[in-house]
Computed example of a mutant assay.
Amino acid sequence: MLEVINGFLLVYFIVLTTISVLIPHLVKPIAACFTRPSLEEKASFAEVKRLKNEQKSISMKEEFAAYHKLQRKINEIENRLKENSQSRMSKSLAVKSTVHIALQAVVALIIVISVIWFRREPIVALEGNLFPLSTMLQYPSETPNAISTHVWVMISNLSIRTLLKPIVS
């Protein structure tokens, strides 16, 4: 049987480890806020669309010069959009990696500080005698047959990563 000694810490560390697992999926929407197409790019997209519609109304055989003049304008704008898109993609990659590293560092720091702060607090107690493992599971707590904060973080991290693997992959 399992007896919860400190329910707050149990839930607290489960939430922290869940956030840690979900960080790669939280980064995408956060980074998307910083790398949206500019108003100039949106206007260029609209211009290309307008020019292509105009080009459709022109007969290529009868008005060859006008048709190709529009085609050159379209190509020029699309080349500019391609350059801007590549620039935006490299910026997006930089933002994603920065946000990912920052979030991982913050969550890891919170977990490490919390584990140090609550190192002597047992999270749950198990019934029975777990002789070969009891010392390792309870260290540095002095409650018999308890699972300490350190071990609870490792157990919850492994369990949550295993449970969420099919969902987040």
Rank of each mutant, 00 (worst) to 15 (best):
V99R: 00
S156C: 05
P166S: 02
K96L: 04
L158M: 05
I123H: 08
I19F: 05
L26P: 00
M154P: 00
L158W: 08
K69P: 06
E40I: 09
Y67V: 05
M60Y: 07
M89A: 07
V27M: 00
N84Q: 14
S57V: 07
P122V: 05
L109A: 15
S90M: 09
L133S: 15
E3Q: 06
I155N: 01
I116L: 13
E127M: 14
M89I: 09
G7I: 02
F13K: 04
L81I: 12
F8I: 07
R88C: 04
R50K: 14
S59I: 01
L137P: 02
E83Q: 11
L103G: 04
E3Y: 08
E62M: 14
L133G: 14
S156E: 03
N157F: 06
N79D: 10
H25Y: 02
S90G: 08
A102C: 07
T35E: 04
N84A: 11
K42I: 09
S97M: 12
M89R: 12
E121F: 12
K49T: 13
P37L: 04
S114E: 11
E127K: 15
V15Q: 08
S156V: 13
S134G: 10
S38A: 01
F64Y: 15
P37C: 04
V27K: 00
L133C: 13
E62R: 13
V11A: 04
L22W: 03
F45E: 03
S159P: 02
V21Q: 05
K165H: 12
H150K: 12
R80T: 07
A102E: 02
M60K: 15
I116A: 11
G128H: 12
L103K: 01
K96G: 06
M89E: 10
S134L: 06
I110F: 10
S134D: 12
I58Q: 01
L26S: 00
R36V: 07
A46W: 09
N145L: 11
C33L: 09
R50P: 00
W117F: 15
T17C: 05
R80G: 08
H100N: 11
S156G: 02
N6S: 04
S169P: 02
V153Y: 01
Q86H: 12
F64K: 15
K69Q: 12
S38P: 01
K73W: 09
I113G: 03
A102W: 01
I116T: 13
V168H: 06
R120V: 13
K28S: 03
A105E: 11
